[in-house]
Simulated scan of single mutants.
Amino acid sequence: MPSTESDPEDAITSEEIAGTAPAPAATGVTQGTKRNAFTELMSPKPKAAKESSPQTLASTRSPNTRFLKERDGLGAYTRNPSSFPPSRVIYHTDDFVAINDLYPKSTVHALLLPRSPLSRLHPFDAFDDAAFLTSVRAETAKLKRLVAKELQRRYGRYSAQEQEREAVLNGETEVPSGEGLPKGRDWESELLVGVHAHPSMNDLHVHVLSPDMISECMRHRKHYNSFNTPFLIDVADFPLAEDDVRRHPTKAGFSNKDLICWRCKRNFGNRFKQLKDHLEEEFEEWKKE
């Protein structure tokens, strides 16, 4: 295997980078549900364009060159987003493309791809540009709202906070005197948002995902720790100070840290299978909050 395929700090596997790992089928939108901006964007449309792999490459390239080019796979979305079906591309503008992650690590996992030339830089360098950072933050906020709406659509019926609000809206209960309408659940505040300290792909991309970590693509310890340690850096934290430990993820050893449940903080050490089983239980309880 070429050395470029075995970078220990990659948050994803070489097969995921190459686009050859098993990926879940696009789930689309459940028919008959209330539609909103996010569900309209996420819905599969009739006669959608056939999805092509962003990592499609000439077979004549050497393995080393091929793998290096495969790290450029996200560029296919920013170059020609309309060539992908709505199950993959959520929306696109002149400056950004939002997509569903090909290998989601949670039940909802979106990526924001800037179309600026600065996106070819490492995030630490790209976000030194104040105007670019401001634009990415603003667009990330937009995508967060859409992802939060999708979580509400999927799981709102299980949530006690949402049920309290719905009971008032449906006239089943009255708002106590002097109190306003219950706000419902703040799904947006629960999202994981940020860039990886060591990006595995060459094009800058911001992750916006639910915290549940429930996905058939959550297969490895480094998958989990890449989103549940400081290896994931919120765009709100940039620009980073020069002595910020997150600038040196290898030295910090984020990928080798103990596996800690994101919800109850139980320490599973290196027992990934036990953590996965536990996450299924936490997922059911999380939905009920």
Results as ranks from 00 to 15, higher is better:
Met1Pro: 11
Asp10Ile: 01
Glu16Phe: 03
Ala21Ile: 01
Ala25Pro: 14
Thr27Ala: 15
Val29Trp: 05
Ser43Tyr: 00
Pro44Leu: 14
Leu57Pro: 03
Ser59Tyr: 00
Arg61Thr: 11
Arg61Trp: 06
Pro63Cys: 10
Arg71Val: 06
Asp72Arg: 02
Leu74Met: 11
Ala76Arg: 15
Ser87Cys: 11
Tyr91Gln: 08
Thr93Leu: 14
Asp95Leu: 12
Phe96Ala: 07
Arg115Tyr: 04
Ala130Tyr: 02
Phe132Gly: 10
Leu133Arg: 06
Ser135Ile: 03
Arg137Asn: 14
Thr140Val: 07
Ala141Gly: 07
Lys142Ala: 13
Leu151Asp: 06
Ser159Asp: 10
Ser159Trp: 00
Gln161Asp: 12
Arg165Leu: 11
Asn170Phe: 02
Gly171Val: 06
Ser177Asn: 11
Glu179Ser: 12
Leu181Gly: 03
Leu181His: 04
Lys183Arg: 11
Lys183His: 09
Asp186Leu: 11
Val195His: 07
Val208Asp: 07
Leu209Trp: 00
Ser210Trp: 01
Ser215Arg: 10
His220Phe: 10
His220Ala: 11
Arg221Tyr: 01
Arg221Pro: 01
Arg221Asp: 07
His223Gly: 06
Asn228Ala: 08
Pro230Ile: 00
Phe231Asn: 03
Ile233Gln: 04
Phe238Cys: 12
Phe238Val: 03
Asp243His: 05
Arg247Thr: 05
Arg247Pro: 07
Thr250Pro: 00
Lys257Asp: 09
Arg263Thr: 01
Cys264Val: 02
Lys273Ile: 01
Asp277Lys: 13
Glu281Ile: 13
Glu281Trp: 08
Phe283His: 13
Lys287Ser: 10
